[in-house]
Design a protein around this nucleic acid. Structure first.
Lengths: 260, 260
DNA sequence: CAATCGCAATTGTCGGACTAATCCTTGCGG
DNA sequence: CCGCAAGGATTAGTCCGACAATTGCGATTG
């Protein structure tokens, strides 16, 4: 058994929109919510590759016993994994880990599991490629369709980022919120599920940059440029500024990864 | 109870990559796989809006009884919905339908549920906006990174589409497969989960066009143009051709929606 | 009137038995 | 010797009935 659910596994509870980063805000889930915790455990084990693709997670009774939960709770956990495309269950064959191409890598929980361990450089690159494609267009739409309320909250985020810096959790949270607001303001319902993946990329960048300390460039000017363009309803300007922002973040992030 | 699971609900079994379209290929699942069927039932009821946002799906025992399944199976179905962001369960409060912004609209099953009933024009527009942003970039990457094997399969799809036309299931399948292959060939793991949403948009287009019959333009020339550019490793050409393809599909689709 | 307490509704968990599907072996017949 | 069919064994899927934990809300009390 590559698992174990002794105390202190720190449920993780992603799903909101935050990724582990601020995983401190656990209300008081002192117990009795096992299938979620177990789903996290198994999810991490699979996404990290500790359980190889094609492997059989076989023996519901035995596994549930090993994790010290009932078979029902174990099954509910597996259903969650199946719903996210990580595994599939068939009678007699057991539940097998599906190939990565079937995984829903944009799901908030899957992303959290992917970044729970050391981030994979190739996947980070893919995520930035996605950002580079999507976010400039999102910024353009946001500039053209944003409401005053959305703009006001964006201003607040920018202010917070400037005052708090990205070295403290509140600053990072404001950063994530700013990018999420742009997606909201784009008014495109199909874009909303991409929020989590963009937040993940944002977090990786700030995390690695603050870990390395110096030698990285300041992302604030570009953020401000995006905001200004959105305020002026300048779609082209917002797209261009966002493009610069992402290019810079991408370069710095990979420089940081290379060094570590 | 707005539900019922008498025979003939036709499980639906999405998840592969196909959307309902060819929902005929049900092997022999004559019974005994309830939680999946019930998840489809509830999912459709929620996504279609028959169960309004904020509503309480309360009373696991009663609901399970009404659906004529055990509480365990019902709970597993609800876990699936929760994993896709449709509902959340809390003791004493019941399981409530979350706001649409929390739904994972890119999940294959959620998409299938969204298109199981009459498609919502606003969401179709959002989907095409997403395609317009993502797919030209995907085509560019595919042109630059494709393998020979991928190219060969693309050629096969194009040939099939030409011979079979989009009026028969095989032709539509080839169409979906072609777009999926482009994503695969892009070599970007983060793009793969977008396959289902693109397939959904593709299906809506072909479905509506074939329903209306005449007055729509032929998408084959643009498909061929994309393929030729990918063959020549011409990134710019592939992106441009894909852009034309999507613009045309978008226009024709909305013309068809407006007429119906 | 406000703060606290307790109740009851509802999900979460348990375990243990039975059902259905399916792979694999074994044996039969050609 | 080979093909095919029957049966066994393995594993997920379902069901049942009970108990535990959580928590919103009303009742009670200062």
């Amino acid at each position: 058994m590559p698992f174990s659910r002794s105390a202190g596994d720190a449920d993780g509870k992603p799903g909101e929109q935050g990724l582990p980063d601020e995983f401190a805000s656990q209300p008081k889930n002192s117990g009795r919510r096992f299938h979620g915790a177990v789903a996290n455990l198994l999810g991490r084990a699979i996404v990290s590759g500790r359980v190889p693709v094609g492997e059989r997670l076989t023996g519901e009774i035995a596994n549930a016993e090993a994790l010290d939960i009932s078979r029902s709770a174990y099954r509910e956990a597996v259903q969650v994994l199946a719903a996210k495309g990580l595994v599939v269950s068939k009678p007699k064959d057991g539940t097998r880990v599906l190939p990565r191409s079937r995984w829903n890598m944009l799901d908030p929980m899957v992303l959290a599991w992917a970044f729970a361990e050391e981030p994979d450089a190739a996947f980070v690159r893919d995520l930035f490629e996605l950002r580079a494609v999507v976010e400039p267009a999102v910024a353009r739409m946001a500039a053209e369709r944003r409401t005053e309320a959305q703009l006001a909250e964006m201003r607040e985020c920018i202010g917070l980022m400037g005052r708090k810096t990205l070295h403290v959790p509140e600053g990072r949270k404001a950063d994530r919120r700013f990018h999420a607001l742009l997606i909201e303001a784009s008014g495109n319902q199909a874009m909303i599920p991409l929020t989590a993946s963009i937040a993940a990329a944002v977090d990786v960048t700030t995390l690695l940059k603050s870990r390395l300390g110096s030698g990285t460039r300041d992302p604030m000017p570009d953020h401000i440029a995006v905001f200004d363009a959105v305020e002026l309803r300048d779609g082209d300007g917002a797209a261009k500024a966002m493009e610069r922002l992402i290019t810079l973040a991408h370069e710095d992030t990979h420089a940081a990864i290379a060094k570590s």
